Simulated assay, not measured.
Amino acid sequence: MTAAQTESIRKRRRTKPLVLLRPIPGDSPVHRLWAGTKLIVVAVLSALLAVFPGWVTIGLLFVFVLVVARLAGVTRGVLPSVPPLLWAILLIGAVAFGAAGGDPAGLGGLLGYLQLFFLAASLMGVCGLVSWTTNVSEIPPAVSKLGRPFKALRFPVDDWAVTLGLTLRAFPILSQEFRVLFAARRLRPRTAATTRRERWRRWRSEVIDMLATAMTASLRRADEMGDAITARGGSGQISALPSRPTSSDAVALTAVLALCVVSVVIQSATGG
């Protein structure tokens, strides 16, 4: 193994991938909240940012995310590494928006870009907190209970909850499976391509092989999951688990509503 290959392996080990739908260990008040409460909080905060996307709302939401992360025991170690290419794209966007000018003092475009960036980051922080503090098995029963009013309109709420639960369960499994496939592809010996035609042909062949292998792995995992669900009593058991809010959920919702009211009042009074 050459020195360049060794350094490349070390860099890949230092980078931390994005890990979602896997709760961090802990028994904090945030972990014990009902999954439906967390989904309601995400919907309410998303609506707040859609209607009042000002700096006041974004700042209060950032403080909210930091406080909740501290209560839940979420550390910086769970944050993924940001690829250098993404930083370069963000920098190019900042330069392009900054060149547009605008009030105040010719920084209107840059401020608008930063506002959009922090708005997206705050929403990602809220969704990340839900992902890091909620077990996947708790989400389908919560969705089924939240959608109970729609059952009177003959909406297939339970089927939607089961589909959502299976999707959330399959995502981490398939993600890990694809990482193994990509690692195996990198270890395969390959002859050096001397011409552009050969490089294009090899790239096309590798893409076709990876797609075929990924489909095969997905079908195999789906068959295994189907057998496991059948052995445990069918898909109806996924959305039939006991799930209900408690008094701490009422406190959490009250705190979020208070945050929304304070944000709306301050932003309406200051105009920002």
Rank of each mutant, 00 (worst) to 15 (best):
P156L: 00
D158I: 01
V82F: 11
V19S: 12
L253G: 00
F178H: 09
W132A: 06
G272T: 05
T230E: 15
G272D: 08
H31F: 03
L61T: 10
A152M: 04
F155C: 08
L259K: 05
A72F: 08
P141G: 00
T270Q: 08
L49Q: 10
T230V: 09
I238R: 00
I173M: 14
M1R: 09
M210T: 05
A231E: 02
L48F: 11
M210Q: 05
L18P: 15
F150W: 06
L164Y: 04
C260G: 00
L241N: 01
F182I: 10
V67L: 13
R186Q: 15
R12Y: 04
L39Q: 05
D209S: 14
G73V: 02
K151D: 14
K145L: 08
P245A: 01
L168F: 06
P84L: 14
A252F: 13
L253R: 02
G165V: 03
S131Y: 01
V130I: 06
A94C: 09
R232C: 06
F118T: 10
T37G: 14
S175V: 05
V42W: 04
I24G: 10
L211R: 06
T37C: 09
F64D: 06
D209C: 13
V65P: 14
F171N: 04
P17I: 00
T213W: 02
A3K: 14
R232F: 07
T216C: 01
Q5F: 15
P23R: 08
L166P: 00
R190I: 15
C127K: 00
A170S: 14
R196A: 07
A161S: 07
T133K: 13
G233Y: 02
P25T: 09
R204A: 13
T2C: 12
P29L: 11
A222D: 12
S137G: 13
G147V: 07
R32F: 07
S81L: 05
W87L: 12
R154Q: 14
S239K: 01
V51N: 05
L110K: 03
F97I: 07
I40Y: 12
A3T: 11
T37V: 08
R10D: 11
A192R: 15
W200D: 14
I58C: 14
R220Q: 12
L119I: 10
V51R: 12
G101I: 08
P17Q: 00
S122P: 14
P29Y: 03
P156W: 02
V162F: 00
P104D: 01
L61H: 05
Q176D: 15
G59L: 05
A222Q: 03
A35C: 13
A193L: 11
T15G: 02
R220A: 11
E7K: 03
A170W: 06
H31W: 12
A96I: 11
P83S: 10
T191V: 09
